[in-house]
Simulated scan of single mutants.
Amino acid sequence: MPVLHNRVSNDELRALMLAETEPRVTLSFYKYFRIVEPQAFRDGLYKTMRALRVFGRVYIAGEGINAQVSVPKNRFAAFKSALYAADASLDGLRLNIALDDDGKSFWVLRMKVRERIVADGISDPTFDPSNVGRYLTAEQVNAMADDPRTLFVDMRNHYEYEVGHFDHAIEIPSDTFREQLPMAVEMLDKDKDKNIVMYCTGGIRCEKASAYMLHHGFEHVYHVEGGIIEYARRAREQGLPLKFTGKNFVFDERLGERITPDVIAHCHQCGQPCDTHVNCLNQGCHLLFIQCPACAEKYRGCCSDICRDELALPLDEQRARRAGRENGMKIFNKSRQRLSLTRPGDRPEESGGQ
């Protein structure tokens, strides 16, 4: 019976990845399609990807697949062929190649079966996720951005929007995608006669959001094909001006890839211009926040004096202080002026990171 899960510790796997000399490619992809037996599909794909030394995070559900992975360059062609052959619906699937990549984004392959590839909270049996808005190419996106009858709607979380977004885009101030969907309908109800352009990191959230808007009576609904990643790639290839400003947050070790040189966010500790996301080095906190180099030195990579002082204590005393304390992974959410708690060990809303 082949191994269908990891048996080596994270630290060992990370060390092995960092020691690799073969260049890697970081990419993401998704597809909404019917999978009759998600577990069987997962197990077969896991064996294939593991044999090709693919690392990353893959979610599979009855509604499709969502993945962010890194692949050895010399096995990329084999990976692509194997993925396209896994199901007829995946043949020719668009792969979003990372823009700013050193190949060190993942060090382990995690493949999970879930109820949905994007946690949307939709229970309406009449909702059809395949009835989506019209795709926009990079050139069409730019034309829409210059049209006063068009609204760009960001379907990402606050910490993503904060470091980069399309010019004049509307932020839906919510912690989760499932909260954003009804909120977007409510916020835009008076604008049903306008062009509504949904966008996200790689396309998976805005595609479903476009279907949700159509389901609620909006008629002129579009979404950016391939999300921010594909838009920026195509715009650069075609020499088009970039309508997205700043950095694109990504759900891997990089925590962001540069789209334009503009820094539109600020350090959460001193307020200086900065768009570098970090996690507090105090593992009893692990807050995701923006920190400039000066504050990183001052607080030793921590989010506060309290965490810095606690991190300096002996390990036994650190553990004693954390015992019984509710300290899951936290997100600094300026839009709500509070810290948003998630389950211990979780990354920011892993709704797909696309």
Score class of each variant (00 low, 15 high):
residue 52 L to Q: 00
residue 139 E to F: 11
residue 80 K to D: 07
residue 326 E to L: 15
residue 54 V to M: 09
residue 78 A to F: 14
residue 336 R to C: 14
residue 229 I to S: 08
residue 89 S to T: 00
residue 259 I to P: 10
residue 165 H to F: 09
residue 37 E to I: 06
residue 116 R to T: 15
residue 77 A to C: 09
residue 328 G to E: 14
residue 150 T to P: 01
residue 33 F to N: 13
residue 141 V to Q: 11
residue 58 V to C: 02
residue 272 Q to F: 03
residue 283 Q to K: 15
residue 329 M to D: 07
residue 63 E to Q: 05
residue 341 L to N: 10
residue 299 Y to R: 06
residue 102 D to V: 03
residue 297 E to L: 10
residue 148 P to C: 06
residue 101 D to F: 14
residue 60 I to Q: 02
residue 345 G to K: 07
residue 159 Y to C: 01
residue 142 N to T: 11
residue 67 A to R: 05
residue 349 E to V: 10
residue 274 C to Q: 15
residue 255 L to Q: 02
residue 195 N to P: 10
residue 18 L to E: 11
residue 90 L to I: 13
residue 200 C to Q: 08
residue 192 K to V: 14
residue 18 L to C: 02
residue 325 R to L: 09
residue 150 T to E: 08
residue 205 R to M: 03
residue 231 Y to P: 00
residue 311 L to Q: 04
residue 91 D to A: 13
residue 312 A to R: 12
residue 44 G to H: 04
residue 259 I to H: 00
residue 311 L to V: 07
residue 220 H to Y: 13
residue 30 Y to G: 00
residue 107 W to P: 07
residue 46 Y to M: 08
residue 40 A to K: 14
residue 224 V to N: 03
residue 352 G to M: 12
residue 301 G to I: 12
residue 235 A to R: 08
residue 264 I to Q: 04
residue 245 T to K: 14
residue 292 C to F: 01
residue 172 I to E: 09
residue 233 R to Q: 00
residue 309 D to N: 15
residue 125 P to T: 03
